[in-house]
Nucleic acid binder design. Structure first.
Lengths: 262, 262
DNA sequence: CGTAGTGTTGAATTGAATCAAGTGTCGTGG
DNA sequence: CCACGACACTTGATTCAATTCAACACTACG
């Protein structure tokens, strides 16, 4: 998923000083010295609709942490809420564990997407979030984001939009879980991933799943076995090609029809 | 559900002039002349944490529309997004209809709760919302709310919190739908209603359901028949008492255990 | 190279949906 | 004010989609 490795993981000292005037065309997504202005994700995450000086101000509050290894936690359920996070590279899942230990995945996060908004209201994160692979993030201390939003109407507007988008997305999942069959859920999930990959300029028809079948099942309210069976069935119908974590969507139109038929 | 009827439904002229210095102790929840400062719901909806002058400013942008009859629409799917709404009295449901005509309820709204945040990002409402009974609302034009939030940090903070709360709530429903049984979902739904009624000083153990079994089923991803059967089963177990729309929770602890056992 | 985690496939089971038939309730108009 | 019709709700019998249980294959990593 990531185009390069992270060679400069611990290079913390130079990050704030990154120049803004001339985007330095850094392409390494793990590189902690990439500023918001030069980040190729900046249309997705917060800086959209901000001008140069505004981006610079945002840039100053963003903390570019060292990369996370697979399985590392960004935060855990009930931790005090402090920041929201923008995925810079890699991917994350968030999940809750019930008292009896049954886990349930509540979301997957790809580059450019914002993590942690569930903690804003209660001041404690409602779920745990961990890296699915070697990943890096931008940490945005929330009280500073609020303060800055107050100065920059564009930023306030954009963050309202991001939260509104999250709400709309969650409600779509509500519909999906309350009325779709296993096949419809799975098709919808694959199409959703596809368009999210497209947003970060990755192929929408051929990609690697960062999560296990078990994760997908927990997310969609299905068992591992069912997810596996549906994948095989879709493959037999010629709609997709599956090899382990590698997915190719062979007939997107037909996948859409599965859902449309609902 | 409402303590009084609305006798002054069309009294639009006097509403802005409502005095703020001396809360006029209007108790009729449909009464359009009740200002934010004197509204008994103001801890739930937007004004919490605002001072007198701030509430006054908010008050000026709020439009107190005439009451809605049962079945009236607040807005419809794909309508241009203009406002969010605070329920003043009564109740609403929002729902989406798929291409094939199958409807799915995405939410219920009780007094003090905010409707319409799903439209913020896309500028179009993602679902339709209609009154479940004779109800009244406060309409808050969103672009004015944004402008005012920019002047009042407390308001900005509170609206971020309201949206964050919605996100956290939606994720709980995700978990519910993806792993709870019909009985667990129903118990959880009843307990949720119970605490929401408690917030507006109504009895948490004895209340009227504003929605049909069908609505509940669509919301919980179950059929009418299943909801009905579960109600009967819970009643036989002595956990609740059902008479039509009238519900009494006889053993809240046991209801909690149904979910806890998950 | 071995082992834990991940994935596949089959057979049996089951929780909820569907199909079906009925009763109860409410609002409307005569 | 009552009768009618539409809708809301209940209950039972049957079906079915997805889970559970089980056994095994693959892979990837220390």
């Amino acid at each position: 998923m990531n185009t390069t490795d992270s060679k400069e993981e611990e290079n913390e000292s130079s990050r704030i000083e990154a120049k803004l005037e001339e985007p330095p065309v850094k392409i390494c997504p793990h590189n902690p010295s990439v500023s918001c202005a030069s980040c190729r994700l900046n249309e997705l995450c917060l800086p959209i609709a901000l001008n140069k000086s505004e981006i610079h101000q945002l840039d100053e509050i963003v903390e570019r942490n060292r990369p996370y290894k697979k399985g590392d936690h960004l935060y855990r359920q009930n931790d005090g809420f402090k920041s929201v996070y923008a995925v810079r590279s890699g991917s994350f899942k968030s999940y809750v564990v019930s008292d009896s230990g049954v886990g349930r995945v509540t979301g997957f996060f790809l580059p450019g997407e914002i993590i942690g908004m569930d903690g804003i209201a209660s001041k404690h994160y409602a779920n745990s979030t961990q890296a699915l692979e070697h990943s890096s993030i931008c940490e945005i201390p929330f009280f500073q984001l609020e303060k800055l939003s107050h100065q920059l109407p564009n930023l306030q507007h954009h963050f309202f939009a991001i939260m509104g988008n999250e709400i709309a997305k969650d409600q779509q999942i509500h519909t999906l879980l309350s009325s779709y069959t296993a096949e419809e859920r799975t098709a919808s999930f694959l199409l959703g991933l596809s368009s999210r990959f497209a947003q970060v300029s990755l192929s929408p028809v051929r990609f690697l799943l960062p999560m296990t079948r078990g994760d997908i099942g927990e997310y969609l309210g299905l068992t591992v076995e069912t997810v596996s069976r549906i994948f095989t069935a879709l493959q037999r119908k010629g709609l997709i090609e599956v090899n382990n974590r590698e997915i190719e969507l062979l007939d997107i139109e037909a996948l859409r029809n599965i859902i449309g038929a609902n």
